[in-house]
């Protein structure tokens, strides 16, 4: 098992690193590749089972794009044809769209892998608890961001929120799932917070009946929190 973390020094806001810690516990024998900002993504030249990219500040989004744009065609090819599963959390998902529009209307070209685009609204910040349905899984978590992503269709969406904001704050469609790309605005420790989702992801890596580390505690924690989403007049932010 080879797991790559893309630009982990700058793409790790607010608990995102929890997913790496969790994956290291899940796969103690796996090789973890930490790709630095000035290095070429490892999955472009090597077999990688899972590549994760987490959320980042807006200036750092631009730094990431500066490095990735020259590799645009190679990246598209890898997203299309490699066996790697890709997990994009928070605003890293925005890099896959056509462009990111800044607060002053300037459009930054993005990787154009998907027919979506993002718009920043700083200083307006979207903060929201999220509960969403994804097949038979209920995802829970939190989004906190300055931007919206538009163009996510029912077919493209990862899940449908019944609590909280969608990827476009006016929609209830959240995230993306296409072929081997998984993306969501949910940030932080998504995997340890959602054991069913963690198992779903691990199954996509070819493990049929995964067992999670400390599984009973993970489920106790998850169910306790899920139950709290039923508080009447739940405050989302």
């Amino acid at each position: 098992m080879i797991i790559e973390l893309l630009y982990p020094r700058m793409c790790c806001l607010y608990g995102d690193k929890g997913n790496t810690i969790f994956l290291q516990k899940c796969f103690p024998d796996a090789e973890f590749v930490f790709t630095e900002l000035n290095d070429k993504p490892y999955f472009l030249d090597n077999n990688v089972d899972l590549c994760c990219m987490y959320s980042m500040s807006e200036p750092n989004q631009e730094k990431a794009l500066e490095r990735l744009m020259p590799l645009k065609e190679e990246l598209k090819e890898a997203f299309e044809n490699s066996n790697t599963q890709f997990l994009f959390l928070g605003n890293s998902m925005e890099l896959l769209g056509k462009y990111i529009e800044t607060e002053d209307g300037y459009k930054i070209d993005a990787l154009d892998v998907l027919d979506i685009y993002s718009v920043r609204h700083a200083p307006k910040r979207f903060n929201s608890l999220i509960r969403a349905k994804m097949e038979d899984i209920t995802l829970i978590g939190y989004t906190s961001r300055f931007s919206d992503t538009f163009g996510i269709t029912e077919e493209l969406a990862l899940c449908k929120n019944d609590v909280g904001l969608g990827s476009d704050a006016k929609s209830n469609l959240e995230g993306i799932l296409t072929k081997n790309i998984i993306g969501t605005y949910l940030l932080g420790p998504l995997l340890p917070s959602n054991p069913d989702f963690a198992k779903w992801l691990i199954k996509r890596l070819g493990i049929e009946s995964p067992t999670l580390p400390h599984e009973d505690v993970l489920y106790t924690c998850y169910k306790t929190k899920l139950n709290e989403y039923n508080i009447p007049d739940l405050e989302l932010n």
């Binding site: 607010y14 608990g15 995102d16 690193k17 929890g18 810690i21 608890l129 939190y142 906190s144 940030l187 932080g188 420790p189 917070s193 929190k225 709290e228 989403y229 508080i231 007049d233 739940l234 405050e235 989302l236």
Partner: peptide, 15 residues
């Protein structure tokens, strides 16, 4: 505050 009517986003403990 969050415990009254919300569910605290606790992701920061992973930092």
């Amino acid at each position: 505050h969050d415990r009254k009517k919300s569910v605290e986003y606790i992701g920061w403990i992973y930092d």
